[in-house]
């Protein structure tokens, strides 16, 4: 994995065009000329050191809400630190990463998530951390972004459907939250829950699943340095289709373990039952480690297609993170603990 922490060599955030202005500039170029043109032009001035109010491009009703989000956070890192992962595999395009999503809360059509999720409000947002912990906490999303250093991590993502991508995530290790709330000795697992909002997430009306989405990790898996709480990708805040504002990324497990739009993190003593374990217990287990030797009951996990490539490549044990994580599972039968 590639890890890059904030460093002094970066462009100061004041010199970077905040994303909302970048978008308004694009909107302008696409042809939103007319009366607003002069206002927008002023807003485009890259030298402006104070953040331009959101109101220049958003209706007044949402401006107050939008103002609570921190545009500066978006601009902390604009560029990705490398164009490939540690194995030399190229990073997928922003376009591909943000338009090909498995997010059943919106739709089962991977290319349809982006447009359905476009206006999903992810600010304000709070994350409850409770259960078997010393210090129960409710984090405000903005607080989480500034509280922990945001790192860039270029990870491979292997979907259980046998396709994969390389994604430059932004975020911080989950262990940072866990260390702050201090799990009690009887806490053995971490249980995560996605927001439940069927009015705005049409897929949650589907009766094929037992909503809300739930996932879980063993405490030692959750404490592992590779386990990331992601707030962004490609140096920008996450878009709703990628699980904004906060999602889990566990690169050595199938993608469905990396739960999106988290509202609750609970420390528990019993193994949590995930949504997929409920839906098809013989097909999706608790561990869901990427393993080319343990097939899905209906399809092979031996190969995968990297998005953007023709043909197939061999799937790597633990998605190529064997060296870092294999020790977590010594003595565990990976076939029965799929």
């Amino acid at each position: 994995m590639l890890i890059k922490t904030k460093s002094g060599t970066e462009i100061p955030s004041s010199e970077i065009t905040p994303e909302h202005i970048y978008h308004s500039r694009r909107k302008f170029m696409v042809g939103a000329a007319g009366a607003a043109a002069s206002t927008l032009l002023a807003a485009c001035a890259p030298s402006s050191s104070s953040p331009i109010p959101e109101a220049t491009e958003q209706p007044a009703a949402t401006a107050a809400q939008a103002a609570t989000s921190a545009p500066a956070a978006t601009a902390k890192v604009v560029q990705i630190s490398a164009n490939e992962d540690e194995l030399g595999d190229a990073v997928n395009s922003f376009e591909d990463i943000t338009n090909y999503n498995n997010y059943y809360e919106f739709t089962t059509d991977k290319t349809g998530v982006a447009s359905l999720a476009k206006n999903y409000p992810t600010s304000p947002w709070q994350v409850v951390v409770d259960g078997l912990v010393k210090n129960k906490r409710i984090y405000d999303m903005d607080d989480l972004r500034s509280r922990f250093d945001q790192e860039e991590r270029i990870y491979r993502l292997r979907c259980v459907e046998a396709w994969s991508m390389v994604i430059p995530w932004m975020g911080f290790p989950l262990s940072k939250i866990l260390n702050e709330v201090e799990p009690l000795p009887e806490a053995k697992y971490v249980r995560f829950e996605t927001v439940y909002d069927p009015e705005q997430m049409p897929g949650q009306k589907s009766r094929w699943f037992n909503w809300p989405y739930v996932e879980g990790l063993r405490l030692d898996e959750a404490m592992h340095d590779l386990t990331l709480m992601s707030t962004g990708l490609y140096g920008r805040d996450l878009l709703p289709q990628n699980g904004a504002p906060l999602r889990l990324v566990v690169p050595w497990k199938y993608g469905f373990k990396s739960i999106k739009s988290i509202v609750k993190i609970e420390l528990v003593d019993k193994m949590p039952t995930s949504l997929w374990m409920t839906s098809a217990p013989n097909e999706y287990g608790f561990y869901a480690n990427v393993n080319p030797n343990v097939d899905h009951p209906r399809w092979s996990q031996g190969t995968e297609r990297r998005i953007g490539e023709l043909g197939r490549r061999k799937t790597l044990m633990f998605n190529g993170y064997e060296e870092q994580v294999a020790s977590l599972y010594s003595g565990l039968d990976l076939k029965s603990n799929y």
């Binding site: 097939d295 209906r298 399809w299 092979s300 190969t303 297609r305 023709l310 043909g311 197939r312």
Partner: peptide, 21 residues
């Protein structure tokens, strides 16, 4: 062709291992 680029070892596995195939 497009999915497996005529890699016959992969294809034979795909047919045998995957019930739907």
């Amino acid at each position: 062709w497009l999915d497996y680029l005529f890699e016959w070892s992969f294809i034979v596995d795909a047919i045998i291992d995957q019930k739907y195939v």
